[in-house]
Design a protein around this nucleic acid. Sequence first.
DNA 1: CAAACTTAGTGTAAAAAACACACATTCTTA
DNA 2: TAAGAATGTGTGTTTTTTACACTAAGTTTG
Lengths: 238, 238
Amino acid sequence: MPAKNINTEMTQIDDYFKSAISVDCVILGFDANGLKVLVIKSQVDPFIGMWTLLGDLIHPSEHLHDAAKRVLNKHSGMGDAVYLEQVEAFGNADRHPLGRVITIAYYSLVKLSDYDSSTTENSTAVWKSIDELGKMGFDHNEILVACIQRLRRRVRERPIGFDLLPHKFTLTQLQSLYEAVLGEKLDKRNFRKKIISMNLLVDLKETQKEVAHRPAKLYKFDEEKYKKLESEGFSFEL
Amino acid sequence: MPAKNINTEMTQIDDYFKSAISVDCVILGFDANGLKVLVIKSQVDPFIGMWTLLGDLIHPSEHLHDAAKRVLNKHSGMGDAVYLEQVEAFGNADRHPLGRVITIAYYSLVKLSDYDSSTTENSTAVWKSIDELGKMGFDHNEILVACIQRLRRRVRERPIGFDLLPHKFTLTQLQSLYEAVLGEKLDKRNFRKKIISMNLLVDLKETQKEVAHRPAKLYKFDEEKYKKLESEGFSFEL
DNA sequence: CAAACTTAGTGTAAAAAACACACATTCTTA
DNA sequence: TAAGAATGTGTGTTTTTTACACTAAGTTTG
C-alpha cells in the first residue's frame, strides 16, 4: 500500500500515488456492412455527447487483464472466450480532464451474431461502423487507430478472424472479413486455395438457407486442430 | 487533479488515485558477444541484490515517452536519437511490494560503441548478456522477454538493427547482429544479396584496420534515403 | 619469404510461393 | 423458363526463396 503522509519526504512519495489507471476496450464486431465498434456517448465534461470507447478505472487490486474482461462483459455480455489483446498504454499528462489518468488500451473481437443487447443490463452502448465515428472524446480516435493497426497485423499471423464470424460461415464471408480488416480486395481463387490448404476448416456439409442465389457451403473453424498444429510448430500465415 | 477527501463518495473516487505508474526500459546493446542489456542491482526489499531493469516512477505531469527517455538518458547517457518503443503495460496487482505500481515497458537500442560510462553520473548500471541474467527482480524477466520478442518482429520490418551497430560497420557484423536477434543462422550470400538490393547502404570505400585476416569493406546506413523511400511507400523487409 | 591461417566476397540453378485470370454451376425470382 | 446473383473451381507465369563452394586479400608463423 502507498505510504502515509508522515513527513515531507513521504508526502513527495505519496504524490506519485495520485494517478489513476483505466482500461479502454475497442470492442469489435463484423457484419455484412463491415467492422463495427461498440461505443457510448460520453458524459464527461468537455466531451459530452461525443462517442467514446468503453472503459473503466481499474479497481485497486484488480489485474489489468481482468479489468478489461470486466468492461467487455459489462457492455457486450460476453466476457470469457472472447479474443482480447492489450495494445498500448496512452498516458499523455493532459489526456483526461479529471486528473492524471493513464489508460491501457485493449481490443477484443466478438461474434456480432451472438450479441444480445438484453443481456447487457444498463449499457447504452451501440455498434457503429468504424468510419462513421467522427471526432471521438478524449484521445479515443488515436486509441482506435492503434488497435485496428494491431488487428491488421495479427489477423495475418493468427487465426483470429474467426472470432468475428458466426460459428458457421461461408468462404465468401471469411474473405470479405479479411478484406474489411486489411482494407484491400483479395483474389477469390487464391484466397480459397490458401485457406483450404491449411486444413483448419471443417466442411459442415450444410448450405446457406434463404439466399436469393446459389447457396454457399458452410464451414467452421477447427479450434482443436489449430491448437494441436500450433503446438507442433505450425504457424498460421495469410 | 484528483478530488480531495471531502465526503465518503469522494474518498472512494480518491481510492482510485492511489496507484503509481512507472516505466521500465530494456536498454539493449550489441557487441561481438551478442545482445547486452543494461541492468542494475535491486535495492528493494524482497529483491535486494537481484538484477533489475532500469526504471523510474513517472513524474506527476510527465508524458510516458518522456519518462522513458529520462530513464534512458540517466543511465546510458544517450537520450535522444535513440530508438525507443513502447511494448506493453505490466500491471498485476501484486507485482510491486510497495503498493500498486503499474509499469509501462519500453525497449531501446543503443550503439555500444558510443557508450561512455563516465557520462552517466551516479549510475551503477552494467551491461550483461541477456542469457546470463538468471532470475531477475520483480517481473523483469517477463518484461525482458516481451521486449525481445517485439524487437525480433520489428527488426524484420524496420531498419532498426543499425541502431545497435557502430556508424561504420561490415556486412558480417550486420549479419551476426541479425543472427543474434533472430536466434538463427543466416546464409551469407542470400543475406548480402537481399540487404544490398535495398540500396540503403553506402559503401564508404574504407576497410577495417588491424584485423588478422582479409579486411572487410565498411558501410553506413543511409538514413535520408530510407526516409525518402519510406515516404514513397517502400517498406523494409528482411 | 613461403606456407598456413582467417575471414571476405561472389553467382547460379532448383524449388516454392505468389499472382493473374474466366467460365460453368446452382439456386431464386419474375 | 429465362434472367439474375453469387458460388465454386485449375492452370500457366512470374517472383521470391533457398541451397550451395570456391577464390581473394590480408596477417601470422616457421
